[in-house]
């Protein structure tokens, strides 16, 4: 079963990478770009076949390793 874990900087945590991307988009001429935030996507292939159990497993992986809960939040979805 494939899952996708999306890890994003928490609200209120400075995201210099997102800021720089936003700035570069402005330089390219894209007007009207508000806040830009950059995170990461991690795809997992799990042996588990029950979608809810697989999501719980991926959530546990995110809490313990994939995300740093001090600065990041995450969401899990079936891929």
């Amino acid at each position: 079963m494939k899952l996708r874990v999306t890890v994003m900087p928490k609200n209120g945590v400075l995201d210099p990478q997102g800021k720089a991307i936003g700035h570069a988009l402005g330089t390219l001429g894209f007007a009207g770009v508000g806040e830009v935030r950059a995170g990461k996507v991690i795809e997992l292939e799990l042996a588990e076949t029950d979608p809810e159990a697989a999501k719980r497993q991926a959530g546990e992986m995110a809490r313990r390793l994939l995300a740093n809960m001090v600065i990041e939040s995450f969401s899990v979805e079936l891929a």
């Binding site: 945590v13 400075l14 210099p16 990478q17 720089a20 740093n68 001090v70 600065i71």
Partner: peptide, 8 residues
Amino acid sequence: ALLRNATL
């Protein structure tokens, strides 16, 4: 935690 330097 240690984040990316503010200046990148």
